[in-house]
Design a protein around this nucleic acid. Structure first.
Length: 283
DNA sequence: TTCCAGGTGATAA
DNA sequence: TTATCACATGGA
């Protein structure tokens, strides 16, 4: 257990920001994080300090990067002009959100199965895949999701040889064939994330869209959440709705060049919130 | 029960 | 090129 002082960091908002599906509130008030083959618990002390259930070495070599702790989010929020009412509210509402730098394969599979699903349903399906095809990280946890072992996200090769029948019990619906095909492409290196990380975003996006079941939106999510291309801008139903209603269909993307994906996270988190719905209902 | 969800592929015009 | 439609299933 180590204690770290971190500014501009809100666990609840990060867990509910729709970018990851395995970060959950525990009964203790801490948040559990299952990522990169590790299990972590974080507790907000409420005084700007956070308790991490890991070693100093792991914190520095793994979690600092995963939680994007070196990024100055205040600076990014300062790009928003005061005249932009919606985004001004969004960055205040979303204060403390960080962009997680996740494993690209986990992001790929998770967002392929996310299509036409609600976030709770996505989480259920992801956990189902993990418990069936992942490996045990923590043998017998009394925390996590309802106790029992905690599993890693299954690697691509663990899914590549399955049939649609095999994963039929994971609530994937028609997306089962997409997941298996993507697993095969990643396992045999037709898609190589270590290369795509250093490829220009447009070319990387084209490569990702060659995967069956990956279109513009999912490819953008992989670029942003898995490959560190911070200018990627996933446009889902919520973002489209916001752009249509708040920006008359045209969002000034160039203003946020280099950080567009992070701005998108604020838009998403606020755009789907009850706070925003209430504000709109008032007009 | 009905509606909707961090969309995409197939098909038609 | 753009527009329309089907698609599996869980949650609210």
């Amino acid at each position: 257990m180590i204690i770290k002082e971190i500014q501009d960091f809100d666990l609840r908002k990060i867990a509910n920001s729709g970018q990851c599906f395995r970060m959950n509130l525990l009964g203790s008030g801490a948040y559990s994080v299952i990522a990169l083959g590790k299990y972590l618990e974080i507790l907000d002390n409420g005084d700007g300090r956070f308790q991490f259930s890991c070693s100093e070495a792991d914190f520095l070599s793994i979690w600092t990067n995963y939680f994007d702790l070196s990024c100055d989010y205040t600076k990014i929020r300062s790009l928003v002009p005061s005249g932009d009412t919606f985004l001004s509210e969004a960055i205040e509402y979303g204060w403390g959100i960080h962009l997680l730098r996740q494993d690209p394969w986990e992001v790929t599979a998770s967002f392929i199965l996310s299509q036409r699903k609600s976030i709770p349903a996505i989480k259920t399906a992801v956990e189902s895949l993990c418990s069936k095809y992942g490996t045990v990280i923590v043998p017998d946890s009394d925390s996590g999701s309802g106790g029992g072992p905690i599993y890693s996200f299954p690697c691509a090769s663990a899914l590549a040889d399955l049939s649609c029948c095999d994963i039929g019990s994971c609530s994937l619906g028609y997306r089962d064939k997409y997941i298996i095909n993507a697993a095969q492409c990643v396992a045999n290196r037709d898609i190589d994330f270590s290369i795509l990380q250093n490829t220009d975003p447009e070319s990387a996006k084209s490569a990702l869209k060659s995967l069956y079941g990956v279109g513009d939106k999912v490819a953008s999510c992989i670029l942003l959440f898995g490959l560190g291309h911070l200018n990627a801008f996933p446009e889902d139903v919520w973002i489209k709705r916001v752009i249509e209603t708040q920006y008359a269909g045209i969002f000034p993307k160039s203003r946020y060049d280099g950080y567009l994906g992070i701005i998108q996270q604020y838009m998403f988190y606020y755009g789907k919130s009850n706070a925003y719905k209430k504000r709109n209902a008032a007009f």
